[in-house]
Design a protein around this nucleic acid. Structure first.
Length: 248
RNA sequence: UCUUUUGUCUAAGC
C-alpha cells in the first residue's frame, strides 16, 4: 500500500493524472494517505473541482487532509475557501497556521499574514520565515530585519530570505555581509548570492562563487550561464552549457 | 525513503 501511494504521488507530480486516477480506481485498499495524495495531486495539476470532490467524498479526514486543502485552495487563489476550512477544522497544528500565512502572502495579503502570525498559539521557524519573506516581498526590509533579530532560532532559509531582501533593495554590500555571517550555507544560499552579483553586473565575482561552492545544482548552472550571456560572454556560456551534468 | 507549510535560477503562460 505504501509503494502504491508513493507511485500515485509520483504520477501526480509528473502530471500523469489519468494514470493516477486509474491506479486509485484499481487499488484493492486505500488509506487516508491515498485520499490525501489524490487531493494534493489534483491541486498540483490545477483540477480544483476534483480536489474538492475527493475532499467531500473521502471516508474521513485527518490533519493532513485539512492542511492539504488549505494550501491547495490558497494556491488556487481561493482565500475564502481556505479560511473556511481553517475555521471549521478541529485540531489545527502549526502547519495549518503556516499554510494560512503562506497563502495570505502569496495572495498579496501580507498584513493579514502578519495579523495571523501574532495570533498563533505556537510558532516555529517556518512561521517566522514566512512572515519575513512576506515583508521582503513588499519591500518592508527594516521590518523584516526586526523579525529576523527577534526570532528565537534561525535556519539557513531565514538567512537566505534576509540575503534576498538586501539584494532586492540593491544593498549588495549588506547582502555580502549577511552571506558571510551565515553559520551554514547550502546550495540555495550560494545560488542567491550568485544571482545578486549577476544582477549587479559583477559576473566575475559570481563566477568565483560558482567555482568555490561545494555543490552545484541545476539553478547554479542556469544562473552562471545567464550571467555569462548577460555580459556577452557567449563562448563561456556555451562552454558551461556543455559542461552541465545533465542538460535540459 | 506513502500524503500537508518557508528561501535561489530558467522556461512556458498571462
Amino acid at each position: 500500500l505504501r509503494s502504491l501511494n508513493s507511485k500515485l504521488s509520483d504520477y501526480m507530480k509528473n502530471g500523469l493524472v489519468e494514470e493516477a486516477q486509474d491506479l486509485f480506481d484499481r487499488m484493492p485498499q486505500r488509506s487516508i494517505v491515498t485520499w490525501n495524495a489524490m487531493i494534493r495531486g489534483y491541486f498540483q495539476n490545477g483540477i480544483l473541482d476534483k480536489a474538492r470532490y475527493m475532499y467531500r467524498e473521502m471516508p474521513f479526514r485527518d490533519i493532513f487532509s485539512y492542511n492539504t486543502m488549505i494550501s491547495g485552495l490558497m494556491q488556487c487563489g481561493d482565500v475564502k475557501g481556505a479560511q473556511e476550512v481553517f475555521e471549521l477544522m478541529e485540531g489545527r497544528d502549526v502547519v495549518s497556521w503556516n499554510s494560512m500565512i503562506s497563502g495570505y502572502v502569496n495572495n498579496g495579503m501580507v498584513d493579514e499574514a502578519v495579523r495571523l502570525f501574532h495570533g498563533m498559539p505556537v510558532k516555529d521557524v517556518v512561521s517566522w520565515n514566512l512572515v519575513m519573506a512576506g515583508l521582503v516581498k513588499i519591500n518592508e526590509l527594516s521590518l523584516a530585519e526586526n523579525f529576523f533579530g527577534e526570532m528565537p532560532a534561525r535556519d539557513v532559509a531565514s538567512w537566505t530570505i534576509m540575503l534576498k531582501g538586501f539584494l532586492s533593495a540593491g544593498r549588495i554590500v549588506d547582502a555580502r555581509e549577511c552571506f558571510d555571517d551565515m553559520p551554514e550555507k547550502d546550495v540555495q544560499a550560494w545560488n542567491t548570492m550568485m544571482v545578486g552579483y549577476i544582477e549587479n553586473r559583477c559576473v566575475e565575482i559570481a563566477e568565483g562563487l560558482f567555482h568555490k561552492m561545494p555543490e552545484r545544482d541545476l539553478s547554479s548552472w542556469n544562473e552562471i550561464i545567464n550571467g555569462f550571456v548577460s555580459v556577452g560572454r557567449i563562448t563561456d556560456a556555451m562552454r558551461s552549457y556543455s559542461q552541465m551534468p545533465q542538460r535540459s
